[in-house]
Simulated assay, not measured.
Amino acid sequence: MTDIQELLLSRIRDVADYPEPGVVFKDITPLLADPEAFGALTDALAVIAKDTGATKVVGLEARGFILGAPVAVRAGLGFIPVRKAGKLPGATLGQAYDLEYGSAEIEIHAEDLGPDDRVLVVDDVLATGGTAQASLQLIRRAGARTAGVAVLMELGFLDGRARLEPELDGAPLHALLTVG
């Protein structure tokens, strides 16, 4: 394990039985509260953004906003929020996706991405991959190309990586930490 991985792991708190019994929630708020750890995370993700040739960073609501915006600034790139449906004013592009019990929809402003953009998707956790998959489909529908996906932590036992690989079209999936 690298020094940065040890630092990041030491600042992630396990919360048992949240949000429901049997689930161990990975709480990143202690990491965000530590300027050394948050800075190291931002730097590591900014390097990935630069290495992938990204021109924009997309952050997934809500913790992807917290991570993606400083990454975009550090890497000298634009930041595009991917919001839940109905949260953005003006013309939007939407992408529906299935959840375990129902469905949801995410949106971006219609004019935020175009054919010259290479987009890095940033989020805190890759779990089942549903939201990330929908964001990749939305990026493609906007006419942009995927530069990759970068997450703080991948929950390997939920197999989200397998769900995303067909949508990545060969672009990399980076997880700074993998659990399970």
Rank of each mutant, 00 (worst) to 15 (best):
Y18C: 11
D116E: 15
P166D: 01
V71R: 04
I48P: 06
L60R: 02
V125P: 06
L88Q: 03
L152Q: 06
P30D: 05
L173D: 02
L8C: 05
A44R: 02
E100Q: 15
T2Y: 11
G78T: 01
A33K: 01
R83K: 10
K26P: 05
G94K: 13
F65A: 06
A171M: 11
A49W: 01
A110T: 03
V149I: 14
I28M: 04
F25R: 10
A104G: 10
L136C: 09
A40G: 04
I106L: 12
P35Q: 03
M153D: 03
I4G: 04
D117E: 13
L67V: 14
L32V: 07
E111M: 12
A62G: 10
A33M: 00
R140C: 01
P115V: 14
L152F: 10
A147W: 11
M1P: 13
V47M: 07
V179R: 13
L155A: 12
A150Y: 00
V58H: 03
P172L: 14
L152S: 06
L136G: 00
K87Y: 02
F38Q: 06
G129L: 05
H109S: 07
E111V: 12
L113C: 13
A104K: 03
D27P: 03
G68V: 07
P115W: 06
F65T: 05
A44D: 03
L168C: 08
T128E: 02
A16C: 01
A37V: 10
F65G: 05
T52Q: 12
Y18N: 13
R63T: 08
G114I: 10
D116I: 07
V47Y: 00
K56C: 08
F65V: 06
E36H: 13
L173N: 03
H109V: 00
E36R: 14
G86A: 09
G129C: 09
A127S: 15
G156T: 07
A175F: 06
Q95M: 06
A171K: 07
S103W: 02
L88K: 07
A69D: 08
A147V: 11
A91Q: 08
D17N: 15
D34T: 12
L155I: 15
V119S: 07
T128M: 06
G90D: 08
A171Y: 07
Y97K: 08
Q5K: 13
I48L: 01
L113S: 10
I108Q: 04
R11M: 00
V24N: 09
L136W: 05
A16T: 08
Y101D: 13
V82R: 06
L168D: 06
I80G: 00
I4A: 12
A104F: 03
L173Q: 02
R13M: 07
D43N: 02
E111D: 15
G76N: 14
A142Y: 11
V15K: 03
Q5M: 08
D14V: 09
R63V: 09
T128C: 09
L7Q: 08
L8R: 03
T178G: 10
G94M: 04
L93E: 00
V23T: 15
P19T: 13
P89V: 11
A62D: 05
A40C: 00
